[in-house]
Design a protein around this nucleic acid. Sequence first.
RNA 1: GGAGGCAUACCCAAGUGGUUGAAGGGACCGGUCUUGAAAACCGGAAGCGGGGUACCACUCCGGCGGGAGUUCGAAUCUCUCUGCCUCCGCCA
Length: 425
Amino acid sequence: MIDPKLIEEKPEYVKEALKKKLWDFDPEPLLSLFQRRRSLRKEVESNKAEQNRLTSSVPSFKKEGKDPAPIFAKVRELAANNKAKEEELKTVENEIQARIEVLPNLPDDDLVGGGKENNHPIKEWGEKPQFSFQAKDHVALAESLGIIDYKRAAKISGSGTWIYVGEGAELEWALLNYFISSHLKDGYQFVLPPHLLNVESGYTSGQFPKFRDEVFYLEGVEPKKFLLPTAETALVNLHRNEILSLDELPKKYFAYTPCYRKEAGSYRTEERGMIRGYQFNKVEMVQYTEDDKSDIAFAEMVEKAERLLQGLGLTYRLDKLAAGDCSHSMARTYDIEVWIPSMGIYKEVSSVSNARDYQARRGMVRYKDKDGKVHYCHTLNGSGLATSRVFPALLEQCQQEDGSVLIPEVLRPFMGGKERILPKK
RNA sequence: GGAGGCAUACCCAAGUGGUUGAAGGGACCGGUCUUGAAAACCGGAAGCGGGGUACCACUCCGGCGGGAGUUCGAAUCUCUCUGCCUCCGCCA
């Protein structure tokens, strides 16, 4: 949530910043609501104070043997008069809340405005492989290697799914293990969260209310639960409604979970196979930091995600996203995109973002500084990494003339020393 | 699934209708002692969300798992939801 004070004090700044996020924000209604709230609060609270004052005089009244009945009548009258005001105050507060909670996070000042088209690459790593033979795309490779079964996936589940089989499952699992072992080495704490989360968690992460329709709900379960679209949703809720102490920051977590997404209507014919589906595997990193230390954490997480791809030897690009292409809850996002030879484009395998205090404010995640003052934490997240995109890139970039796929050395320990996946028959 | 119990602040915890205007303790900060630390002792401030003010001081409102209610007055009584614990049953 954007700091309501900032909206009140610098409405123009907020308006302009949100414009960079392609969000048309008119502060006027909120400003007048703020004002209305202020005057209502004053009235309601001073009336309350008077009621409290009268009520607290009752015991001494009784002690003196006087009849408190007139006080009762007076307080009842005050309360009755106050009732309409109190209700209006509540309505106004709800209205303010509703208007603010749908707003996306403010982008960092250094971001350019606009959407995808204004993203700009800040680094390219590796060589785009040149094949001296007829290279295959990952769908053809997966089929000839017999490691992905699309047909049976359609049978047992439906479209937008796939099954890792045999060495495919081994490779997928090896990737996850490679990522996990790397995060463990870096001192991140491993978390395996539940995949079904309550709506409060969706609210804190910023998925709700705006993206309520993009997740899967469990039918017939009350209170409502949904399948997490990313482990970030679980991890940034770990410390909801908590006040952390300074010495436990920064908190560094990572989790492995499948990610469940509806992604309704966003298929494109070129996105074949494992590029986009209802469920994919991802290892996700999350950090909680002090409110002036999140830039350090951001740099660290970008570097970590990059290092994973470098370890695999895959060609990738680092992209700084324009404000409008950053996620709803995020102040800044860098994407890491891996080269997919068959498509001739880079595809996102990691998105590292700084939410600043946006999520912490929604979930009341705070810490106490050395003077005992309470601040909102900053939260950050980054994929490290999403395997469903790494897997096809790896197949394509590591394919050999004989139709086999050379397994990157870092994965071999997790695959019983296997060096390559050979085509079946 | 059955039966009971519990929920108070960062943590522990007192409190069953009115000097509770949430006690007390720990953690925290300062000091004594110590080579240093721990322990012990002495002292201190504060405490969660807001408003009055830009800060402090001061002051007001709200806040005792969430929501609703009874009452002049609710942490305390009622209803409801959620979570946790114990025992029994079932089960990977």
